[in-house]
């Protein structure tokens, strides 16, 4: 891996520190969904650190098993946040609940039967990404439906923008990653760079969502 790629990877992995720090600064003011999200970010930080350091311990073996578990936890965390947010929408809560169960089944199937434990969970990750994008779009629909709310004061607005940006790109990236690696390495490199950049941008937006709690008047 080139030095630039290494540095870029490190920056993307450690960008989770920004929302972590902001989240703990405003921890007492955070609502319950956002505390759940903060705990997920803590897990994300440790997984990123541990997996990057254990990558080459066993030669060609990689840390994909941890990856499979982490992506499942990531999906569960976003699902729980949206589940708690849509407190007045029973239909959405029901669908999110169902999707969590289905998502776990897909994740397990991808790990043991489809791609295997040592390969990237492309199917599961794309499935999770589609669902999180849908949750974010439904949130925006209800947000803009209410003409009297200031969008930018809502922590959930920033979290959803970050989720939409990051997971929206993930939908296509993980479906086509194997194809791109095989047929168009440069396109894959560009996609990988975009993925890393969107990861950083998403973390900045998550940090902003925590920052909204400093003057929180209306719960998100």
């Amino acid at each position: 891996m080139s030095p630039f790629r290494t540095l870029y990877t490190r920056v993307s992995q450690n960008s989770v520190l920004l929302p972590l720090v902001i989240g703990f600064i405003y921890y007492k003011k955070l609502s319950f969904p956002f505390r759940v999200f903060l705990y997920f970010l803590v897990i994300a930080f440790f997984v990123e650190q541990i997996s990057s350091r254990t990558l080459h311990i066993y030669g060609s073996a990689n840390n994909m098993p941890v990856g499979h578990l982490f992506f499942l936890i990531e999906f569960a965390a976003f699902s729980i946040v949206y589940f708690l947010h849509f407190s007045g929408l029973r239909a959405m809560r029901f669908l999110i609940g169902i999707n969590m169960v289905v998502g776990m089944i897909v994740g397990v199937a991808d790990a043991f039967y489809i791609n295997g434990m040592w390969n990237p969970p492309t199917l599961a990750r794309s499935y999770y990404s589609v669902l999180v994008v849908i949750y974010a779009l439904v949130y925006f629909y209800f947000l803009f439906k209410d003409v009297m709310q200031y969008s930018w004061e809502h922590p959930m607005f920033w979290l959803s923008i970050g989720a939409l940006l990051y997971f929206g790109n993930n939908v296509l990236y993980f479906i086509l990653i194997d194809y791109l690696i095989e047929k168009a390495v440069r396109i894959e490199a560009f996609s990988w760079a975009t993925h890393g950049a969107l990861n950083i941008i998403a973390h900045i937006l998550y940090a902003q969502s925590f920052r909204c709690f400093r003057n929180q008047k209306v719960l998100s």
Binding site: N169, L172, L176, Y179, L180, A184, I187, S191
Partner: peptide, 10 residues
């Protein structure tokens, strides 16, 4: 076509 579709999707 696949690559264009991917870039268009992004």
């Amino acid at each position: 076509v696949v690559i264009i579709a991917y870039l268009a999707g992004c």
